[in-house]
């Protein structure tokens, strides 16, 4: 599965540049569609989903300012206090792009419950795929897509990951995560 550096997509280069800033300020994970795409899933997307640990406002302002300095901008507002209190603390995501560009976008959310915290605490790098970016585990991505998100696109993403990791996937772990999703996100 090893690849040449020049094979990086625009999405992957954008993600790398972005996470290099974020990781200096807090723990993060990349989740969902981009995880499938970076593993070769053939579908389009305009955004990458990121969850960051729940950091205090002051720390987020430092992160935002570092992103601005590195050439990114927030689509909603340039006021970091408003981003934090008006969006992130209300479980609403915000989107960052490179300044002057519309795409790709990094969609950021704060960790909102123990499930998000678990994902961050069990985050992984996949050196053969990308040595820089932290992802939530493959089992977590499959569980969310099959149990919670469940659109055709998500089911296909999960199927793709299942084939790529067919000899390595921990089915018990997927089922345990699905139980937590039902308990915490679906109140079942």
């Amino acid at each position: 599965m090893k690849r040449e550096v020049s094979d990086k997509t625009i999405l992957e280069q954008f993600a790398e540049d972005f996470v290099k800033i974020v990781e200096k300020h807090c723990k993060y994970i990349i989740v969902s569609g981009f995880v499938a795409i970076i593993h070769g899933r053939s579908r389009g997307t305009e955004d990458i989903d990121m969850i960051i640990e729940k950091i205090p406002k002051e720390k987020f302002i430092e992160l935002h300012n570092a992103l601005i300095k590195a050439g990114f901008e927030c689509m909603q507002t340039n006021n970091p206090e408003e981003i934090y209190s008006g969006y992130l603390m209300n479980s609403t995501s915000v989107r960052y792009t490179r300044k002057g560009e519309f795409l790709p976008e990094m969609e950021i959310k704060l960790a909102k419950d123990e499930l998000d915290e678990m994902q961050i605490n069990t985050r992984i790098k996949i050196p053969d795929i990308n040595p820089i970016i932290y992802f939530s585990s493959i089992e977590t991505n499959i569980a969310f897509k099959e149990e919670y998100l469940r659109s055709d696109k998500d089911i296909e993403d999960a199927k793709h990951l299942r084939i790529i990791y067919e000899d390595e996937i921990d089915e018990h772990k997927i089922n345990e995560i699905k139980k937590q999703i039902r308990r915490l996100r679906m109140k079942k």
Binding site: G40, R41, S42, I155, E156, K159, I163, I164
Partner: peptide, 11 residues
């Protein structure tokens, strides 16, 4: 879905 599986096998 068949196409998804076919492509994943190719990857």
């Amino acid at each position: 879905m068949e196409q998804v599986e076919k492509w994943a096998r190719y990857v």
